[in-house]
């Protein structure tokens, strides 16, 4: 296809992506170099019968003018990246200089908002992804062995947790784990501890979010593996059987190697999706004990008085760098494959 025809076909799609994905990334990069204007304060003196008192207040008219003139704020260079709510270099140096042991370092670092979010995001990504693959594979194996007429309904119900909006799905579970909800009450009865609450402790909240993540994504892995299982070569399975391989050995040495490429695919998709974990934190009202990078950005943009564009943009840039690091191995592999093909 000549270049001209190619462009004629692809330009609308390309334009949309440039305007609303590439440019915003640049816009984020630009905004991250600025921070909010300092508040312009004016002093007004009010005199009453008991003397005069000076009152300091924000000059909102002047602020509005300033905002209209320079909407991005004032230039701050890389200052936003290194301040206490982002990379916090000064704080980190100080923590390492003044802490005695590892536990103290850990607790103090966990108090820095960016690192707290980063650690949760990474933990979520790298705990949920393997669990999803394992659980999905087991479900696929089992469903593949049940009678044919049951498969349709089972797949139907299995798809539900994945298709339903993350926020809605997490709300449904959130209401059930409420201490007055069925799971919450059941857990209290099980451990005979009437004060047990999954919302109270940070550790339990993390576990809840991980469980939600696995519940939400396992159907995806299941469906992909299930489709893969239909294409496992029967001849190989049969010859393995003739060679005396047990059921488990057939799974271990024939099925699993055959499905490995699918596992890579699922891992890639899951890494991308889990790295932007966000809605469950809102659904489970878990922000006090677990925040993710995406949640930090959302929170900055939702700040009570005016959105903290600079802070949100700096976190966004750091997140984008994280995504690219995450994808580098995949990009390299694709590049090699592409070169081999052409």
């Amino acid at each position: 296809m000549p270049h001209k025809t190619f462009m004629a076909f692809i330009w609308p799609s390309l334009l949309a992506m440039i305007l609303f994905i590439a440019l915003p990334i640049l816009s984020v990069g630009y905004q991250s170099l600025f921070i909010e204007h300092e508040q312009i304060l004016i002093e007004t003196e009010t005199c009453g019968p008991f003397g005069c008192t000076a009152e300091v207040s924000v000059d909102s008219a002047a602020m509005a003018d300033l905002r209209a003139e320079k909407p991005a704020g004032r230039y701050n260079g890389l200052g936003t990246y290194t301040n206490a709510s982002h990379l916090a270099f000064d704080e980190i140096t100080e923590i390492f200089a003044t802490s005695d042991n590892f536990t103290e370092i850990r607790t103090r670092i966990m108090n820095l908002p960016f690192y707290k979010a980063l650690i949760f995001t990474l933990a979520y990504t790298f705990i949920v992804t393997p669990l999803v693959i394992i659980l999905g594979f087991i479900i696929a194996l089992v469903v593949n062995s049940i009678p044919r007429f049951l498969k349709g309904p089972v797949i139907f119900f299995s798809l539900l947790p994945m298709i339903v909006t993350p926020l809605v799905g997490s709300l449904v579970l959130f209401w059930m784990i409420d201490s007055r909800g069925i799971i919450g009450a059941a857990l209290q009865a099980l451990f005979s501890d009437p004060s047990l609450s999954l919302k109270a402790s940070p550790a339990l909240t993390w576990v809840t979010l991980f469980v939600y993540g696995v519940w939400h994504s396992a159907p995806f892995a299941f469906v992909v593996f299930y489709a893969g299982l239909q294409t496992v070569p029967q001849d190989t399975l049969e010859s393995a059987m003739v060679d005396g391989a047990s059921r488990w050995e057939r799974v271990r040495f024939v099925t699993i190697p055959y499905l490995m490429p699918l596992a890579t695919f699922i891992a890639l998709m899951q890494l991308m999706d889990n790295f932007r974990v966000f809605e469950p934190i809102i659904g489970f009202s878990a922000a006090a004990s677990a925040t993710s990078l995406s949640y930090l950005i959302y929170n900055d943009l939702r700040a009570a008085e005016s959105p903290l564009f600079g802070s949100a943009a700096a976190t966004s840039m750091l997140t984008i760098i994280g995504v690219i690091i995450l994808l580098l191995p995949v990009l390299r592999r694709n590049w090699r494959e592409f070169n081999r093909k052409t």
Partner: peptide, 26 residues
């Protein structure tokens, strides 16, 4: 076409909220 597809893959991985923070001000 390879580069476009790779760019699309990277774009797909972008957390949506990072893009939103780029939209709001403009």
């Amino acid at each position: 076409t390879f580069w476009l597809l790779m760019a699309a893959l990277v774009f797909r991985a972008m957390p949506h909220v990072t893009l939103v923070s780029g939209y709001l001000l403009p």
